[in-house]
């Protein structure tokens, strides 16, 4: 499992950092989500992985059971990250409603693509190609 874990962390972290370095907020947020996934996997890698989940059978031994503590940590971290992401979505929505640009840097590539109609079109499946 370790090489898979390592490869996945590599993928998530690379893509995450790559997106965090982008200019629009949505990309940064997606990037951060990927970085969080990577971080959670690192956290799981820190304890012993075991071959059995830490849900015990009555009377069963503890031989080969995965370390439950990192799992508890990760669970906490996932929920907190979710709370922050939801808050961020709402904040972005509130901002957009108030007409404020929310890019990290004001570099839109074409104005038409950002018109509400374009978004509406995309939502309805009529994806516009730039």
């Amino acid at each position: 499992m370790v090489p898979v874990l390592a490869a996945s962390v590599f993928l998530l972290l690379t893509a995450g950092v790559y997106l965090v370095l982008q200019k629009t907020l949505l990309r940064v947020v997606i990037g951060l989500a990927l970085v969080s996934h990577a971080v959670h996997l690192i956290l799981l890698a820190s304890g012993r992985q075991g071959v059995v989940a830490p849900v015990l059978l009555p009377g069963g031994g503890i031989e080969g059971v995965a370390d439950p503590l990192p799992q508890a940590f990760v669970l906490t971290a996932i929920v907190i990250a979710m709370a922050m992401t939801i808050y961020l979505f709402a904040a972005m929505a509130a901002l957009a409603k108030s007409g404020e640009r929310m890019e990290v840097e004001p570099v839109p590539d074409s104005d038409e693509a950002h018109a509400p109609e374009a978004v509406q079109a995309e939502l309805e499946g009529r994806v516009t190609r730039p």
Binding site: L32, V39, I42, L43, M84
Partner: peptide, 24 residues
């Protein structure tokens, strides 16, 4: 508030990762 939230999310990710390695 936006950049503050985003940068704190980055910092928090590092915080957790650091704690993970420390636990390890």
């Amino acid at each position: 508030a936006m950049p503050m939230i985003v940068i704190n999310m980055s910092a928090s990710a590092l915080f957790i990762a650091g704690l993970g390695v420390l636990y390890g």
